[in-house]
Simulated scan of single mutants.
Amino acid sequence: MRRLLILLAALAGLCGQPAFAWGEYGHRTVAAIAMANISPATRARIRTLLRAEPQLGTPDCPVRSLEDAAVWPDCLRGESWRWAYTFPWHYQNEPVCADFDIKRNCANGNCVTPQIERNRRILATPGLPVGERLMALAFLAHFVGDVHQPLHVGENEDLGGNKVGASYGIAPGRNLHAIWDGALAERAISSAEPPLARRYSPAERAELATGTIEDWARESWQMSRDFLYPTAFGGKVPCGDRNPAAIVWTDEAITAALPLIDRRMEQAGLRLARMLDETLG
């Protein structure tokens, strides 16, 4: 009975939540881009914060690097009884069939955009306990990645594509959200030339490390509205209609999506680097 109750609690914690954004590979890539583009002073302060890892009390979810920190908030799903209150912070439901309104669908700050700013402020406050600031660093690194995943912002009453069954080319048995988090993101990262995790030029950083948190969320919503949903649903978003039970993300769609995903990864990593330099540097 005890094991059943634990299982039910875990399922309850996951109910209604989107899948992990970008998956571990994607989040580590965003953090690696950031680490390659921050200042030496910022890098040194991050390493100092990482020494407080034991204070997190999460031995099953180690945080020994910024890359570890960027996947830590997803690792916490293994202890939903302790961390379930953080799960709504990973996304922000903005219907692609309505106007973008960053405040409309975020009750009491429990969504990704205000949590980016909240954790930035915690990280920027030297007088707070170092363990609390390390936790804020991990949430910040993760949520900047999350807000750049289109289906963690733009959605069509389908839990960000989680309710839409999907085949990835000829591989069945997935859903639309999982395709973007997993196989598609992994292919985009692994096939990128030059590699995404590298030192970018000043001109590249000036082009990509732009905008506000609201701008980042709006970009994801627009990508969902203008590319992702029309591509999935045969050229248009089924506004007012019932979503198809299943779709096929074709080889042509895979090819078209790869450069868009690479750009979102680059933007996320360089914007995170800029934010960390402004906050810690």
Rank of each mutant, 00 (worst) to 15 (best):
D68K: 03
W72K: 05
N93G: 12
R174S: 14
C97S: 10
T58F: 09
E204A: 13
F233C: 15
L176A: 14
H27I: 04
D226C: 07
Y25L: 12
P126T: 03
I189W: 05
E79V: 01
I33L: 06
Q267W: 01
A31W: 07
R198G: 08
L14K: 05
L56R: 08
I116P: 01
M1E: 05
V153H: 09
E157Y: 14
I254Y: 08
L7D: 10
P40V: 04
C61W: 03
Y25D: 05
P172I: 08
G127T: 11
Q222I: 12
R274A: 00
P195T: 07
V130N: 01
A19D: 14
D60P: 00
R121A: 13
P18I: 11
A52N: 06
L159K: 07
Y200H: 12
N243C: 09
D68H: 13
W216L: 14
G23M: 09
L50T: 04
Q92W: 14
D181K: 13
C75K: 08
I261R: 11
L7F: 10
V130A: 14
T86P: 02
I254G: 02
G269H: 05
C239D: 09
R3N: 10
C239L: 10
I46M: 04
L176D: 08
P95F: 12
W72G: 00
E214I: 08
L151S: 05
E24G: 07
G78F: 13
A217S: 14
P195Y: 08
N156A: 15
S201Q: 10
D226Y: 08
A10I: 10
A171K: 13
A141R: 01
W180S: 14
I247R: 04
W81F: 13
C97P: 03
E204N: 13
